[in-house]
Design a protein around this nucleic acid. Structure first.
Length: 290
DNA sequence: CGCCAGGTATGAT
DNA sequence: ATCATACATGGC
């Protein structure tokens, strides 16, 4: 249809495609050789690129762009103000200067939950591959080569044998358990969305394979719980190195957004962490002499 | 071959 | 409650 062929352009600030779409918060966006980013959001398959501070979107109608894509990309949020506020803190000022184009996406609840189940003890490239294969295997092909993220029911009906092509390892059964508990309402994402954060977290953790870190990722990225800092290895290092006395309480209500700058800074620029990086969580191997 | 990757479930103190 | 270890897979 012609409406999806038109280009939509707008000026944006505090926004970078690679920084936002490749900073470990989502797994379905890829750049092509021309630097255009291809992704799937719900049943939309937008292509995005930037020229200077102009964002161009292709493949999405005007209405979907404004109602779905802009909120998803957090372009309707006042990041200049957020960054001004964060920059009172010297460490955050540095992390923002390092990657000023990061925004925290507003993702689908279920997709965020399932994606971060896959993420555990895994690396981003492989997570991306597993998510791709999951969508191809159980999602709906709403456009040529474009697949939706499978609904809970589709995973609830699957078996570990059927999920073997995902190469998800031991996480396959976690995905099925998540699908079943959500599809049956044993875990209600709609209810969780109305609950105070500790109770919502408890709900999600009823799923096998969902601990506090995965639950917090789902809640931050899928439920807009901006106060949550998912504590993975990198954020433990960041906190040890930069905030030994705790994260500034004045910024607590948006700590999760701050986390995204800090996480990316620490992970892609580990020298900045200083000695703490080398002393934190060093696995000491125990020979056990086999 | 051994370690690492946005951890968690499990069984032993 | 806290703690070590196994867990699937692929890259280096």
């Amino acid at each position: 249809m012609s409406s999806t062929q038109m280009l939509i352009r707008e000026q944006v600030e505090c926004f970078s495609l690679p920084q936002t779409l490749d900073c470990g918060q989502c797994f379905r966006w890829r750049p092509d050789d021309a630097g255009r980013w291809h992704g799937v959001v719900g049943q939309l398959a937008p292509v995005l690129w930037m020229e200077g501070d102009t964002l161009t979107c292709e493949g999405v109608g005007e209405e979907d762009y404004h109602q779905i894509l802009r909120p998803y990309l957090a372009l309707d949020e006042d990041y200049p103000s957020i960054q001004r506020r964060f920059s009172q803190d010297a460490v955050l000022a540095q992390a923002i200067a390092y990657a000023p184009g990061i925004r925290v996406l507003r993702q689908d609840r279920w997709e965020a939950l399932a994606s971060f189940i896959i993420s555990q003890n895994n690396n981003v490239r492989r997570i991306q591959g597993i998510v791709d294969r999951l969508c191809m295997l159980l999602g709906e092909e709403f456009a040529p080569g474009c697949y939706t993220f499978p609904r809970p029911q589709q995973l609830a009906a699957a078996t570990v044998e059927e999920l073997a092509p995902l190469q998800a390892g031991y996480r396959a059964r976690y995905l099925i358990d998540a699908g079943q508990k959500v599809a049956q309402g044993i875990v209600s994402l709609e209810e969780a969305a109305t609950l105070p954060t500790p109770e919502a977290r408890e709900q999600l953790m009823a799923i096998c394979g969902v601990g506090q870190k995965v639950a917090d990722c789902a809640l931050l990225y899928g439920f807009a719980r901006d106060e949550l800092i998912p504590m993975d290895v990198w954020m433990k290092r960041v906190m040890a190195a930069f905030y030994p006395n705790g994260f500034p309480s004045e910024l607590a209500d948006q700590a999760g957004i701050a986390q995204q700058y800090l996480f990316h800074y620490g992970r892609t620029c580990p020298e900045a962490l200083g000695p703490a990086f080398w002393t934190q969580n060093k696995k000491q191997k125990n020979p056990a002499s086999k």
